[in-house]
Amino acid sequence: MIPTKDEFYKALVDRHGAENQKKFDEAVVAICGLGGLGSNIATCLARAGIGHLILIDYDFVDVSNLHRQHYKINQVGMKKTDAMAANLHEINPYIKIETHNIKLTEANTKPLIEKADIVCEAFDSPESKAMLVNLVLEQMSDKYILSSSGMAGFGSANDIKTRRVSKRFYLSGDGVSDVNAGIGLVSSRVMVCGAQEAHMVLKILIGELEA
Score class of each variant (00 low, 15 high):
Ala18Val: 02
Tyr71Pro: 01
Asn158Ser: 14
Thr99Asp: 12
Ser64Trp: 00
Gly175Pro: 10
Lys103Phe: 13
Ile113Lys: 05
His89Asn: 12
Ile54Ala: 10
Ser149Leu: 13
Leu171Glu: 06
Ile97Met: 06
Ile56Glu: 07
Val201Trp: 12
Ile183Gly: 00
His67Tyr: 05
Ile118Trp: 11
Thr105Tyr: 04
Lys96Arg: 14
Val165His: 02
Lys79Glu: 13
Tyr94Thr: 08
Val179His: 00
Ala18Leu: 10
Arg163Val: 14
Ala107Cys: 01
Val76Ala: 10
Lys161Cys: 03
Phe169Gln: 13
Ala27Pro: 03
Asn108Gly: 10
Leu37Gln: 03
Lys5Cys: 10
Tyr170His: 08
Gly35His: 08
Tyr9Cys: 04
Leu132Thr: 05
Val13Pro: 06
Gly38Pro: 07
Asn74Tyr: 15
Asp25Asn: 14
Arg164Glu: 08
Ala157Gln: 12
Ile97Arg: 07
Lys143Arg: 14
Ala18Gly: 03
Lys23Val: 02
Lys10Phe: 11
Gly49Lys: 08
Ala195Ile: 02
Val192Leu: 06
Asn101His: 14
Ala27Ile: 04
Lys161Trp: 02
Ile50Gly: 05
Ile41Val: 15
Ile145His: 01
Pro111Ile: 00
Val176Ile: 13
Glu98Phe: 00
Ala195Cys: 09
Lys10His: 14
Val13Asn: 04
Gly49Trp: 06
Gly184Lys: 07
Ala86Cys: 08
Leu171Gln: 09
Ser188Arg: 09
Lys22Asn: 11
Gly36Thr: 11
Asp117Cys: 04
Ser125Arg: 14
Lys23Thr: 07
Thr162Phe: 00
Ser141Trp: 03
Leu137Arg: 15
Asp117Val: 05
Ser156Thr: 09
Gly49Leu: 03
Ile31Lys: 13
Arg189Gly: 06
Asp178Cys: 13
Leu34Thr: 02
Ser156Phe: 01
Tyr94Ile: 09
Phe8Cys: 03
Ala195Leu: 00
Val179Thr: 12
Ser172Lys: 02
Phe60Ser: 08
Arg164His: 09
Leu135Ile: 09
Asn108Cys: 14
Glu19Phe: 02
Tyr71Trp: 04
Ala211Lys: 12
Met84Ile: 14
Gly155Thr: 08
His89Ile: 01
